[in-house]
Amino acid sequence: MRNLLTLARQFRDDENGAAMVEYSILVGIIAGAAILAILAIGGWVTGRFTGLCGVLNGKAGGTCDAAAGTGT
């Protein structure tokens, strides 16, 4: 009986599981922020290339396809 109570106290006082949950939440937040940053940067770069294609098509007389990423 005494061993069972000792085991129950050790289980109650063990904080390794709580720390693992906290680190998992932290990793999830960091991963979400990284994904959002990558998507935002990708949208910005796409807009810049689309604008550049518009300028090239209008002034330089070239052909530029922003969706395909090709041009002459």
Results as ranks from 00 to 15, higher is better:
36 L>G: 08
58 G>K: 15
41 I>G: 02
13 D>G: 02
24 S>T: 07
69 G>P: 02
13 D>V: 03
14 D>G: 01
72 T>Q: 14
11 F>H: 14
41 I>K: 04
68 A>V: 05
39 L>N: 13
26 L>D: 04
64 C>T: 03
49 F>A: 08
68 A>R: 15
24 S>P: 00
62 G>C: 11
45 V>D: 06
40 A>R: 05
3 N>T: 08
17 G>L: 03
29 I>N: 12
55 V>H: 09
32 G>S: 09
36 L>S: 09
49 F>Y: 13
57 N>R: 15
20 M>G: 02
62 G>T: 14
12 R>S: 06
1 M>F: 10
16 N>Y: 03
23 Y>P: 02
39 L>D: 00
3 N>P: 02
15 E>H: 04
47 G>Y: 04
22 E>G: 01
25 I>F: 06
28 G>V: 02
3 N>H: 09
39 L>S: 12
25 I>V: 15
68 A>K: 15
58 G>M: 13
62 G>H: 12
34 A>L: 13
17 G>S: 01
35 I>W: 08
8 A>H: 09
56 L>P: 00
71 G>M: 08
29 I>Y: 04
14 D>E: 03
62 G>D: 05
9 R>P: 05
16 N>P: 00
11 F>A: 15
67 A>V: 14
40 A>Y: 10
37 A>Y: 12
1 M>D: 07
9 R>M: 12
10 Q>N: 08
18 A>G: 08
8 A>K: 15
